[in-house]
Structures are given as structure tokens and as C-alpha cells.
């Protein structure tokens, strides 16, 4: 029986290959954060987090960093949802994601959902650091419990910085032991799926997106910087994904 959790580190570096494509000089990851390069199209290179074991479990420490250098285009997805589970090791699990995107580089960070299973305790941080001319599409979805299950404790902090200025800093906290009112009318109102889609484009600095209401539980909102946030709360993961997909498609159609 293990008493300390698993440590897993993964690193991706994407670099322009000089022929209009993107190379991956660093692609390191194993165990729960195993990485695979998959078939790509055009200038964009695709990486999949395949996760060869379950987790994070209580006490685990996961860290994933991706650096996209000038002129490179990287798309990162995951093969399956991440399932936070209770572990034999006590204490909270940590999952820290660090994303760095240079000028004239683009990152699509589109992992599958993070599911908080009953009894789990996870603190996840995602910090994206962008140069002024960088582009980003980032999606995060938190699902509270598997079907019909009470959630575990989940805290998620998302920070997006552009040219050294923080344009979004948001911490969401749910489940047993979270600060009171998390399931009430100011936070979730009984919904079980929450999502954020962040799109950063240098063009938004001169032509900011217009705020758009997507029903009473979702909105597309321009942030204080060259970025928009689609924030959505939905009864389940499927309805949430549909909302975020439609919003992203809408933003892509209007891309300058």
C-alpha cells in the first residue's frame, strides 16, 4: 500500500521547424501524463495526453508544462476525461499546468473534462503566460461527480496573463469542505458542469468582441485585455460541451 502519491511531470516544447511546420524538440511524459504525437494538419502539430494510469488520486502531484515558441502552432488534447479519485495516500492532489506562448505562436489547449469523483480532493491550477502577439484557445470543464454521484472537493484556479498583465484570475471551489454556498444560486444552483473557454487574439486589442448572452447560464464576455471568456454552467457535461463548442465555432467564424 502506498502512503505517498505519484509524482508525474510532463513537458512539451513546440518550435517552428523552418519549413512552415512545427517540431517538438521536447515531448516528455510518462505514467498518468504520457504524451503522444498524433496526425497533424497544416502548420499545426497535435499532441495527445493519453494518461496510462488513473488519477490524480489523493496525494498525487502532477505537473504539465507546454512552451510554444515563436512561429510554432501546437494543439493539445487528451484521450479521455481526467478523473480525480480518492487515494490511499491522504491529503489533496495537485495538478499544475503551465502554458507559455510566444509572439506569433498559437496554442490550442483543449483537454477533455475534469471529473471530480466522490471522496476525491484536488487542487488544479492552470496558468497561461502569453506574449503580446500570442494566440490561445483554452478550454476547461469541471464535472462534479460521475453520473448520479456526489462530487469530491475540487478547487480550480485559472490565470491568464498577456504581455505581463493579468487578464483573468478566477478560482472556483466546489464540493464537501468548499466554502459555503457553492451549490447555491450565486455559484452553481445545483448544476453539475462548469466550463470556461478563453480565446486570446492580438486583434481583440483594437476590435474587442461584443458581450453576448447565451441564455441565463452562459455568456461570452470580453475581458479587460485582448481576450474573451465564455463562462458556462450546465446541468451536465454533454450540454456544457455543446454550449462551448457552439461558442468557439461562432468565434472562429468571426475571426478577423
Amino acid at each position: 500500500m502506498t502512503t505517498t502519491g505519484v509524482r508525474a511531470d510532463a513537458r512539451i516544447v513546440a518550435r517552428a521547424d523552418g519549413r512552415g511546420g512545427t517540431a517538438l524538440p521536447v515531448l516528455d511524459g510518462e505514467g498518468p501524463l504520457a504524451l503522444r504525437r498524433i496526425r497533424s494538419s497544416g502548420a499545426e502539430t497535435r499532441v495527445m495526453v493519453v494518461g496510462a494510469m488513473s488519477g490524480p488520486l489523493g496525494g498525487d502531484r502532477f505537473a504539465l508544462t507546454a512552451r510554444v515558441e515563436r512561429g510554432a502552432r501546437l494543439h493539445v488534447g487528451s484521450a479521455a476525461a481526467t478523473l480525480a479519485l480518492p487515494g490511499q495516500a491522504h491529503g489533496e492532489a495537485r495538478y499544475d499546468v503551465r502554458l507559455d506562448v510566444a509572439d506569433d505562436a498559437e496554442l490550442h489547449w483543449l483537454p477533455e473534462q475534469l471529473i471530480s469523483a466522490h471522496g476525491s480532493d484536488l487542487y488544479v491550477t492552470t496558468r497561461a503566460e502569453l506574449a503580446a502577439g500570442a494566440r490561445l484557445v483554452l478550454r476547461e470543464e469541471q464535472v462534479l461527480g460521475r453520473a448520479g454521484e456526489e462530487p469530491g472537493r475540487l478547487t480550480s484556479r485559472l490565470t491568464v496573463r498577456v504581455a505581463g498583465r493579468t487578464v483573468l484570475d478566477q478560482e472556483l471551489s466546489y464540493g464537501p469542505g468548499a466554502p459555503g454556498g457553492w451549490d447555491g444560486p450565486a455559484v452553481l444552483a445545483g448544476c453539475r458542469a462548469v466550463g470556461q473557454l478563453v480565446v486570446v487574439r492580438p486583434e481583440f486589442a483594437d476590435h474587442p468582441a461584443e458581450a453576448r448572452v447565451l441564455g441565463e447560464c452562459a455568456a461570452l464576455i470580453p475581458l479587460a485585455g485582448p481576450a474573451v471568456l465564455v463562462s458556462a454552467v450546465a446541468p451536465d457535461a454533454l450540454q456544457l460541451r455543446r454550449l462551448l463548442d457552439e461558442s468557439l465555432a461562432g468565434l472562429t467564424r468571426t475571426a478577423p
Binding site: 478566477q170 447560464c217 455568456a219 463562462s231 458556462a232 454552467v233
Partner: peptide, 9 residues
């Protein structure tokens, strides 16, 4: 940075 998603939306 605690946030209530429904408050914002």
C-alpha cells in the same frame, strides 16, 4: 480570486 460563475453570467 474566488468566483461564482452564475454571478458573472
Amino acid at each position: 480570486a474566488a468566483s461564482g460563475p452564475l454571478l458573472e453570467v
